[in-house]
């Protein structure tokens, strides 16, 4: 279980304290805060890990807004593999960036979003997709709202009958 996963540098709590003390709020301390703020952004490459710049379409939208909207909608329903719990649209991990580039390039080449999803599901399983599929294991999920509404109607019917009596 020692996959390389992005890690974040935590901010220095001492600096937060110093800026919270009112008497010490002079320009020198403000300057410190600004430096810290800049340092936080400079620390971003440590989070990204790989030394290569992001893929072309990792952070660049497609020229055609209709295609970009299609790609965007798909990216929001694909799970990031290294930051499980975020979609690839929300993640700054290198791998999520590469996956966005893959999605955009394939959409630009005219591939249907569902074909790209299927390609990924074939490799990573249904897990990679946030959009639940219709298969025996998810039938209860799809049936639950219908069952609950039916149960609700049944209960409500009993109530109404009592009132009219």
């Amino acid at each position: 279980m020692s996959h390389s996963r992005p890690s974040r540098e935590s901010g220095n709590p001492a600096s937060v304290l110093s800026s919270a003390v009112p008497e010490k709020r002079d320009s020198r301390f403000r300057g410190n805060d600004v430096l810290l703020f800049i340092a936080l952004f400079l620390a971003a490459p440590a989070f990204a890990q790989s030394t290569l710049p992001p893929s072309r379409y990792a952070y660049t939208q497609l020229e055609d807004p209709r295609r970009e909207a299609e790609a965007r909608a798909l990216m929001e329903t694909l799970r990031c593999l290294v930051c499980q719990g975020q979609s690839i649209a929300d993640s700054d991990a290198d791998m999520a960036g590469d996956m966005r580039a893959l999605v955009r390039e394939r959409i630009a080449a005219g591939e249907k979003p569902e074909a790209i999803r299927a390609w990924l599901v074939e490799r990573y399983g249904a897990w990679v997709s946030y959009k639940p599929t219709v298969e025996p294991i998810t039938w209860p999920l799809w049936a639950a709202p219908l069952v609950l509404v039916a149960l609700g109607i049944y209960l409500a019917r009993g109530r109404f009958r009592k009132k009219t009596r």
Binding site: S4, V82, M95, D98, M99, A101, L102, L120, R123, Y124
Partner: peptide, 16 residues
């Protein structure tokens, strides 16, 4: 594999 393409094709989700 500069854009992780073979990694995706393999169904690999990290290194190593």
């Amino acid at each position: 594999d500069p854009a992780s393409r073979v990694q995706f094709a393999l169904g690999s989700s990290g290194v190593p």
